[in-house]
Design a protein around this nucleic acid. Sequence first.
DNA 1: AAGTGGTCTAGACCACCGT
DNA 2: CGGTGGTCTAGACCACTTC
Lengths: 235, 235
Amino acid sequence: MAVKYKEIADALEQEIRSGKYDAARKLPTEEELITQFGVSRNTVRRAVNQLVNRGYIYQVQGSGMFLRDKSATDYINLGSLRGLTKDLSPDRIHTEVLDLHTMEAGSETAGRLNCEAGTMLYYIKRLRLVDEEPFSIEISCFNKNIVPYLNKDIASSSIYSYLIDDLKLSIGFADKVITSDQIGVVNAGLLQVKALDPALIVENTVCLTNGTVFEYSQSIFHYKKAKLLNRISFK
Amino acid sequence: MAVKYKEIADALEQEIRSGKYDAARKLPTEEELITQFGVSRNTVRRAVNQLVNRGYIYQVQGSGMFLRDKSATDYINLGSLRGLTKDLSPDRIHTEVLDLHTMEAGSETAGRLNCEAGTMLYYIKRLRLVDEEPFSIEISCFNKNIVPYLNKDIASSSIYSYLIDDLKLSIGFADKVITSDQIGVVNAGLLQVKALDPALIVENTVCLTNGTVFEYSQSIFHYKKAKLLNRISFK
DNA sequence: AAGTGGTCTAGACCACCGT
DNA sequence: CGGTGGTCTAGACCACTTC
C-alpha cells in the first residue's frame, strides 16, 4: 500500500467492522484523526472519503461523521471487487470448477473483451456453493494475453487474489449489467431449481487501470438465495 | 450549486455527453483545465474525480484521462438518483398513478423507514411506461413529516425534481437491494407478462444528508425490458 | 459562540508513460 | 527526459449544527 490515505481508510474500516464505534455510532472528529494519525487535514479527509464511498459512514456538516446502519449479512456488495469472497465468510463458500480450458475468442466474445477475434482466452465455468447449497453459476472469460496462466486450483479458490497478489494486475474499473430471466434446463439442474424459474444475472466487464478489458463474466444466481446490495452516496 | 468543483464537473459531463471528446477519447490535461477554468489544481482534480465516480472517464497516471466506452442506451443507472427520468429521454416515459393516499406506518414499514409505527406517510403505486409499453411498477412510501405534501400531478412526473427543487430536500445516500422473484398475478397483469414469470426487483431506502430515512420503495421491472447498469471504479 | 465539516488555494515532490 | 497524474502539506475562509 504505502499510501497514507488508503492505510488510514483501511485502518478505520477495520475499526468500524470490529464494532469499535457501535456504541457512539460516530467517528472521531477530523481534528482528532489528524492528531491520531499525524497527517494533514486533507489526507484525513481523503481517507474518510473512501469510507463514504465504501458505504460505511455519512458526513453531516457542522455535526460529525456517523455510521450507516449495518446492512444485514448475506448480501453481495455490488461495489466491491470480490463478489462472494469478501462479503460472506470464506468457510461458507465452496467452488466447484465445472470446466476450464483455453479457446479462441469468437466474434461476440471478442467484442465484449474488446480484442481481436481469435485471441486466446481462458473459459471457466464454476458452480459456487454457500453452506453446501448451490448459490450461483459463474462463467468467465479471461484474455490470455493478460492472464497467461490459470488452473483448477486457482479457479477453485479466489481468482482475484491470484490476479492481484501474484500476477500483480492492477484492476481499475468495471461495468455490471443486471438483469433477470428464465433459467435454462442445464443451469436449473445445477442450481437445483426448476427450468424457467427466475434467475438473477450479472454480466461483468472488468478493466485494468490502463483501460484494457481483461475479463468478461456472467453470474447466474439462485433467485431465492441471492441478494445484491448497492450503497450509494451523493456528493 | 455555486460550488466550483461541481460546476466544473457538470460542465465537463455536459461536454462529454455532447460528444465533444468522442474523437480524441481523451480529456484535456489537468494543466489545461486549470487555465481553462481558472481554478487551482486541487479543484480541477476534485471535479475530475466526480466524473470518475459517475463512470464517464478513467485516469492513467503518466498518460491522461480517457473516456470510458459508452454504455449502450436503455440502461438504468444504479448509481444515479433519478432512475428512469435521467437515463431515458423524458418523452419516452409515461407514468400512470394507480394509487396515492396517506396512511399510518405499520410495524414493518416503520422498521424500513426507521420511524415510529403510526407515523403518517404517503403510499404511492405507479405504473411506468416506456415507449407506451409497461416497463415497471413502483411502490413508494414517503415519511409525511419530511414530505408533507404530494399529489397525483407530482407523482405522475418526477417526484425527485419536486423533492429537490421545490421542497429543497438534500438527499444524501441510499441502499439498493436487488433480487429476482416470481411475479404475482396482479403485477403480472399490469406489466403484461404471465404470472410466475421472473421479475427484477429493486428495494430502495433513501436518506437525507443528515441520515434521516425519508423513502422506502420497491420497483418491479419487466424482466425482458429492464437492464440495470452499475459502473464502478476502484481507487 | 464554539464545534465541526466543506471549499479552495499554492506549492512541493513522487510515480508512471511515452518518445 | 518531458509530460502527466498521484500524494501530501499548511493554511485560509465559509457553512451548518448545536448549545
